[in-house]
């Protein structure tokens, strides 16, 4: 006789209905270096996967930090990566835009397929990869000597855009997307360093958005911010997923629970569990995940 209303995720609604992550990894891995027109690419796009990692391993010298990560990141969604310190979260996202290899002694094996194309293919220019996959770091790092306007326009200027109208349009659009426009529009000449910590971080998000990336990686973007600034960043992130694919590394599990559609749990360089956020936080399948998120770890 009991009646219960249908239970939907509080925030996610339609997104809580997890698609079957059934991309044929073996098929993708059998393709040639450039997969743009391959069947794997079509399959990947059709099923909404923006990035697929296949047996991704990363080392610092002899130390293996990632031990073969197979993960499919859904397009236009927020994926949170959580896990204890040293589990490889940051290294993982740094492998997604080829930043990891810039560290002396660091190396990567395996594949990272972005829109059907392996970004580690010799034919691929890492600079172009980084333009497609923007990044926001833990500590807000605006260019300190530049104005708010120049901070946002810097990437475009580096790419040769000189048209003032185009730059103005891009700066306004990016600042609006980062939920910062209303707070800085009256004084765009102000130094980026003069903003508050939360505003600086949103400025960094705007800077990343200005070059029109498709994916935004965020490495603990709120860990240096107070709750109000954190809430603003989270609102911005939530809005951004309409057009962007977002991967966020966070130590704050509540943050993952609040904003992410999908959550991955890493431990000792391995992917332990990946699923929709509601499932991970209500009913994790893996004992390690359960122990980590309930604080019974170690």
């Amino acid at each position: 006789m009991r009646r219960r209303k249908k239970k939907d995720g509080l925030v996610m609604g339609e997104l809580a209905i997890q698609e079957q992550s059934d991309i044929d990894i073996s098929l993708a891995s059998q393709q040639g270096e450039v997969l743009s027109d391959s069947s794997a690419s079509v399959s990947q796009r059709r099923r909404g996967h923006k990035i697929v990692t296949i047996d991704l391993k990363a080392q610092f010298g002899r130390v293996q930090v990632l031990r073969g990560i197979n993960l499919e990141i859904k397009e236009r969604s927020i994926t949170a990566i959580m896990g204890p310190s040293g589990c490889g979260k940051t290294t993982f996202i740094r492998c997604l835009n080829r930043l990891h290899e810039l560290t002396p002694g660091a190396s990567v094996t395996g594949r990272v397929i972005l829109d059907g194309e392996d970004i580690y293919s010799p034919k691929v220019n890492p600079v172009l990869v980084r333009r497609k996959i923007g990044m926001v770091f833990q500590k807000p790092n605006p260019f300190p000597t530049m104005s708010v306007y120049d901070n946002v326009a810097a990437g475009l200027k580096l790419n040769g855009v000189r048209d003032k109208a185009k730059l103005d349009e891009a700066v306004e659009r990016s600042l609006k997307l980062a939920f910062l426009w209303d707070e800085v529009k009256d004084d765009l000449k102000k130094s980026g360093a003069a903003l508050s910590g939360g505003q600086q971080q949103r400025l960094c998000i705007a800077r990343a958005l200005a070059v029109e990336p498709e994916v935004i990686l965020m490495d603990e973007p709120c860990s240096a911010l107070d709750p109000t600034a954190t809430a603003k960043i989270e609102e911005a992130i939530f809005e951004l997923k309409k057009d962007y694919t977002i991967v966020i590394v966070t130590h704050n599990m509540q943050q993952a629970a609040r904003v992410a559609d999908y959550t991955a749990f890493f431990y000792l360089g391995e992917l332990i569990e990946y699923g929709n956020t509601e499932q991970i936080f209500e009913n994790p399948k893996n004992e390690l995940t359960e122990r980590y998120i309930t604080g019974k770890f170690g």
């Binding site: 599990m253 509540q254 629970a257 936080f281 209500e282 309930t294």
Partner: peptide
């Protein structure tokens, strides 16, 4: 404490 998983259930 913002309980999750088995605590929340």
């Amino acid at each position: 404490y913002q309980p999750v998983a088995s605590d929340l259930r």
